[in-house]
Amino acid sequence: MPHDHPHDHSELDDMTARVMALETLLTRKGIVESAALDEIIETYETRVGPRNGAAVVARAWTDPEFRDWLERDATAAIGSMGFTGRQGEHMMAVFNTPERHNMVVCTLCSCYPWSVLGMPPVWYKSMPYRARAVREPRAVLAEFGVTLPEETAVRVWDSTAEMRYLVIPMRPDGTEGMSVDALAGLVTRDSMIGTGLALAPEAA
């Protein structure tokens, strides 16, 4: 796969030049504005990312009414925290339990809940993850260092429409009395995709 080998300099320079030329053309034709491109990139580098989702999870762990709302209408509950919009228009929260571990993939492209997790990592968009997550989720989880008990069933959610799924990981033991902010620090991006678990307090 292309991402499995380092891009050599000529290929990189070629792509850089092609994209610069396209931006110049589209700017001159009034189709895009460079300052808006800067703003889009900046938004997903600094403002919209997994901290949004972690705040949702920590609140779900500590606020039973919010948890119920999240279960009934995740779009509204998450929207009430200010996390709305592109690739998060229709949200569903799926809750991990000792009986069921949830994991999210998009086999056909790369659908991902941008409003709560930001842009997807390269591995999520990669052919190996897309091909294998539905067929052998436990083998994939092992590559992330996650081994589930046999009695925990795995449910893999293939995002084939405009529903976007946020996994609510199980709250780790030994976190009683921790603040919501401290709890959010235990919630990793991968734990909200279902390829990881929330961190134990001593590991955070």
């Binding site: 796969m1 990592p121 190996p128 091909a131 294998r132 590559e143 991968d190 390829t195």
Partner: peptide, 8 residues
């Protein structure tokens, strides 16, 4: 099949 490891 055949796409190899995820290598996260």
């Amino acid at each position: 099949h055949g796409f190899g490891p995820v290598a996260p």
